[in-house]
Design a protein around this nucleic acid. Structure first.
Lengths: 123, 123
DNA sequence: AGTAAGTAGTTACCAACAGTAACCTAGCTT
DNA sequence: AAGCTAGGTTACTGTTGGTAACTACTTACT
């Protein structure tokens, strides 16, 4: 989050958008909504995320109270991540948006290619 | 949008999140949902946005078919921006998320300060 | 006539952060 | 003792989000 945004408003929507706007956060939430998982399991199932980004993303989500991190007291210590109630309720809101996205993706795609053609034609 | 995201998936959610995740886009959509407006009017009413950012944001939204740009044929040429039907329907989805944000902001705030205290205590 | 202010942006530039690659400690396995 | 897994951290880089300053044209004021 840039300094400007931080100082400007205490708009609640921004707080949420800062999380939701991050694609990794969304993918992690979607993945965890299916059930708890461990670090490397998430790393494998979410294509293309690096350990660092997963680490950073999880810590953000944990800070916002959307995800809980539980260190299991087993011999090679395992770490289990899961959604909180808040996380689950956000998942509901996200999936509504995600439905909108799926329904309207064709329109957006069409607009984009039409727009890009006009641009390249003009140039 | 980074190269990685672009190449990774054609996930429809990402298309939408790239727009929705941008706070300026959301503010512009919220503003235009109240009615059409012109460039400098938007610039004034949206606190802290620079002409460049407004220009960039509007062009993105136009490209995605969420906003229409109409050049009025009057003496000092004016440009009028407004939401398309698609834009209005996205506004619906956004305001659902925005309601969630408002309802749950206290929880998020609490989590954050609790988390930050734990961190600073640990350090 | 000159100048200030409004129209709708564009250009040049910079700093921050998203992201990658490489490394680390520890325990179990072969 | 080499090599696997676990769960990360550190050091570095490149893109991009963002600001400040400028353009070009009109109208209004004095």
């Amino acid at each position: 989050m840039c300094a400007k945004r931080a100082q400007n408003y205490d708009c609640p929507v921004r707080d949420v958008l800062d999380r939701v706007g991050d694609a990794w956060s969304v993918l992690v939430i979607l993945e965890l909504s299916k059930g708890n998982a461990r670090f490397n399991a998430l790393c494998r199932v979410i294509g293309g995320i690096s350990p660092r980004m997963l680490s950073v993303t999880l810590r953000h989500l944990e800070r916002d109270g959307l995800v809980v991190r539980r260190v299991m007291d087993v011999k090679p210590p395992q770490v289990d991540y899961g959604l909180t109630d808040l996380g689950h309720s956000l998942h509901g809101a996200i999936s509504a948006l995600s439905r909108w996205a799926e329904e309207n993706q064709p329109s957006i795609r069409d607009s984009r290619s039409a727009f890009d053609e006009r641009e390249t034609a003009a140039a």
